[in-house]
Design a protein around this nucleic acid. Structure first.
Length: 479
RNA sequence: CGGGGUGUGGCGCAGCCUGGCUAGCGCACCUGCUUUGGGAGCAGGGGGUCGGAGGUUCGAAUCCUCUCACCCCGACCA
């Protein structure tokens, strides 16, 4: 159908590139690995920000801003942290025409500088907890980049909290993981599996890392957000000390949690079809577009007035900013429909002379292409219903796809065949060692995405070593 | 960082191997007419010096050398 998009079945990664171009979501920058987020892509990010920011604040967090430049020595204070980030660190060595005394890292994440500041701000248990979030850009010098999924610079949100006890920090870590699950599933209509990362895949410097993993339409996993319990590791490196209720000095327990513009990539690869991206209604910057159709000036007058009337009806129940009108007369109808299809607007309402006559509009769903005439009087009632139906349908389809591509596997031969084929999520037993995980990755390219939650506990034996295993883990090829 | 590919009007490409008329084509753009409920048709028109530098030659988009950039595939990572 779409003449400018490679079908998913032909080449998934070309399809992905094409969809982004067709939807005018982003463009390549002159600097390798960087991308320009165009207005229609950025609008999606703004919606993500709005929803998450609201939720963070409901849970007591406040926003602040920490600087882009971090003394290089900060990064090296926490042993695992340096090791983890050194390879992808960008350093400023010169400024003001001179070589710098101490090189400055462009933040790859902000645990270090924030730890440094928290050490100054926290004195007593009365100062705790500290619940700060920041919206920022970060830079990680990646070798291989992909639009939204992995770019040298990206936008994200990073929350950093400090607490009195391990339990409080752990509670915070899981609470924020749940926020991400809620956001991805209820707002983005992306089903995710939340769980802990294995030891060897955790965030550099964390005690435990949790993540939400989604399955893309090519069967690969995408880590969509993470939440870390940092224990006292950063508190010790940066001397974040407080006087506790027993007048004893101790190190704080900290957490950090983040989500990025990568979620836009997840959105595209979860819901997109061969005609382009599909934005779930609850997230869509534009939920409804009303397209006026006419053949001559005489018809135009009536159509435009009717379009306005429909807009007014819908504006009673939706945010007026999320309703767009398309009254362009330099393009023919087909072209105009396609621009909105490719931008993923969930619902289109076509309004022509016939509709003026019938006092109605013809709605067309982006997800299923089904058409339905809606009378002017019904608009305010029916449009929100349709949007919710689309939201539910997108989630249900994604969930069904994941279910269809998820299997319990107990035998390594079957596992290999599974990963060689169409792939997907394999729920398998693993002996808990990095050696086994490495062997599996080497032979099949699959990695452990997350350990299944407690309720998924089920004992068995590792499919490689035969050693006992308490629970299944998810293996998948991943982005 | 290894392998592959590509740089020619705004976008997508042909031409290059076998150097030679004013460098073509499609889309987009501008003008006019006919059209218009899933990507219109005809006619006319504007726009490029061929990624960059050097070289070979009477003559280079085309051959040689160097260089820059981007994309794709792989190992590492949100």
């Amino acid at each position: 159908m779409a003449k400018n998009i490679t079908p998913r079945g032909v080449n998934f990664s070309e399809w992905y590139q094409d969809v982004i171009k067709a939807g005018e979501l982003a463009d390549h920058s002159p600097v390798k690995g960087c991308m320009v987020i165009r207005p229609d892509g950025y609008a999606i990010w703004e919606q993500m920000q709005a929803k998450l920011d609201r939720r963070f604040k409901e849970l007591g967090h406040v926003n602040a801003y920490f600087p882009l430049l971090i003394p290089e020595s900060f990064i090296t204070k926490e042993a695992e942290h340096v090791e983890g980030f050194a390879p992808e660190l960008a350093l400023v060595t010169h400024a003001g025409g001179k070589e710098l005394e101490e090189r400055l890292a462009i933040r790859p994440t902000s645990e270090t500088i924030i730890g440094h500041m928290y050490a100054k701000w926290v004195q007593s248990y009365r100062d705790l907890p500290v619940l700060i979030n920041q919206w920022a850009n970060v830079m990680r010098w990646e070798l291989r980049t992909r639009m939204f999924l992995r770019t040298t610079e990206f936008l994200w949100q990073e929350g950093h909290t400090a607490h009195e006890t391990y339990d409080e920090a752990q509670e915070e870590t899981l609470k924020m993981l749940e926020v991400y699950r809620w956001f991805l599933e209820d707002i983005c209509a992306i089903p995710v599996i939340a769980g802990a990362k294995p030891e060897h895949e955790k965030f550099p410097g964390a005690l435990t890392t949790y993540a939400v993993e989604a399955m893309m339409q090519d069967g690969k996993a995408l880590q969509s957000a993470t939440s870390h319990n940092l224990g006292q590791n950063f508190a010790k490196a940066f001397e974040i000390l407080f006087l506790d209720r027993d007048n004893q000095q101790q190190h704080c327990w900290t957490t950090s949690w983040g989500s990025t513009t990568r979620m836009i990539g997840a959105l595209i690869m979860t819901h997109g079809d061969d005609d382009g991206v599909i934005i779930p209604p609850r997230l869509a910057p534009t939920q409804v577009v009303i397209v006026g159709l006419w053949k001559n000036e005489a018809e135009k007058v009536g159509v435009v007035a009717h379009v306005e009337a429909i807009r007014a009806e819908i504006a009673k129940v939706l945010d007026p900013l999320k309703i767009k009108l398309d009254l362009r007369d330099n393009l023919r109808p087909g072209d105009r429909f396609f621009t909105w299809i490719q931008k993923g607007v969930p619902l289109r309402i076509e309004v022509g002379p016939k509709d003026v006559e019938n006092e109605a509009g013809l709605s067309v769903r982006r997800d299923e292409r089904t058409k339905e005439a809606i009378s002017l009087g019904q608009m305010a009632q029916r449009v929100p219903q349709l949007l919710e139906e689309i939201q539910a349908n997108l989630y249900a389809k994604a969930l069904a796809y994941r279910a269809q591509k998820t299997q319990k596997i107990d035998d390594y031969q079957t596992f290999k065949t599974f990963m060689d084929g169409e792939g997907g999520f394999a729920l398998a037993h693993w002996d808990g060692t990095k050696e086994t995980a490495d062997k599996i990755q080497e032979e099949t390219k699959a990695t452990i995405r997350v350990l299944l939650p407690i309720e998924g506990e089920e004992s068995g034996v590792c499919m490689i070593s035969g050693k006992p295993s308490k629970r299944r883990v998810i293996f998948s090829k991943a982005y």
